[in-house]
Amino acid sequence: MCATCGCSGDTILEPHEHDHEHQHEHGHVHGHSRHSQTRTVTLEQAVLARNDALAEGNRKWLAERSILAVNLMSSPGAGKTTLLERTIRELGSELRVSVVEGDQETVLDADRIRATGAPAIQINTGSGCHLDAKMLFSGLQTLDPPEGSVVLIENVGNLVCPALFDLGEQSRVVITSVTEGAEKPRKYPQMFRAADLVLLNKVDLLPYVKFDIEDFLDGARRANPDVEVLQLSATTGEGVADWYGWLRARLP
């Protein structure tokens, strides 16, 4: 018998809970050592099949209600929330906008959005670094956006993980800012590849920072030859009309 957990080391075992520190090096390999009769089962299944199926469900739910959902992704501090605030203030009379906020902690961003008068819900992912389709589903149920409206989804600030997880959104927008440096598309090509639109924010700061726009555009096109890039400043309003035009063009 195993002195650590009491299981008998040379017999076939049911999976059991281990509630102690368990080094599988105490004299015998237990549980699985005698099995030689195995068979191989071909699965050929997408790792994220479950998420993808839930995302398809969200997409259908949104389409049935003619709701446009846009997934906004960026690193922390690129200006997502500031852009949302301005967008809601300036388009609020024309479009019904509601917001799903994803952050690891706090309700600060949802509070900022609610201050504009738009409905918002906050999803805290805890240690999770991205929103997934299940989280968006529960967010949509709570938010209950009206037919024909726009749902802007502010993903967790992170240029790595959100690229992998389909939420069921219609479009994906990556926001990056001139203060982050022009090399972002080269450092995070998967994220730029996943984008339908790239917004280059804080262009009002271009005179004060070293940022090579041509190099940035070259990196973005290498990662995603089909990507559209718009330059704007969510703070001054420069260039935001093009973003509004892009959004209007996607309304169902």
């Binding site: 009769q37 195995t38 191989t40 071909t42 050929e44 997408a46 790792v47 096109r221 030859p225």
Partner: peptide, 21 residues
């Protein structure tokens, strides 16, 4: 040209498993 279509390299799947017969 940067205008290319990916044919392979983005796979993320479970190919097979071996189970106790």
């Amino acid at each position: 040209s940067a205008n290319r279509e990916l044919l392979a390299g983005e796979e993320l799947k479970i190919r097979e498993v071996e189970v106790m017969a």
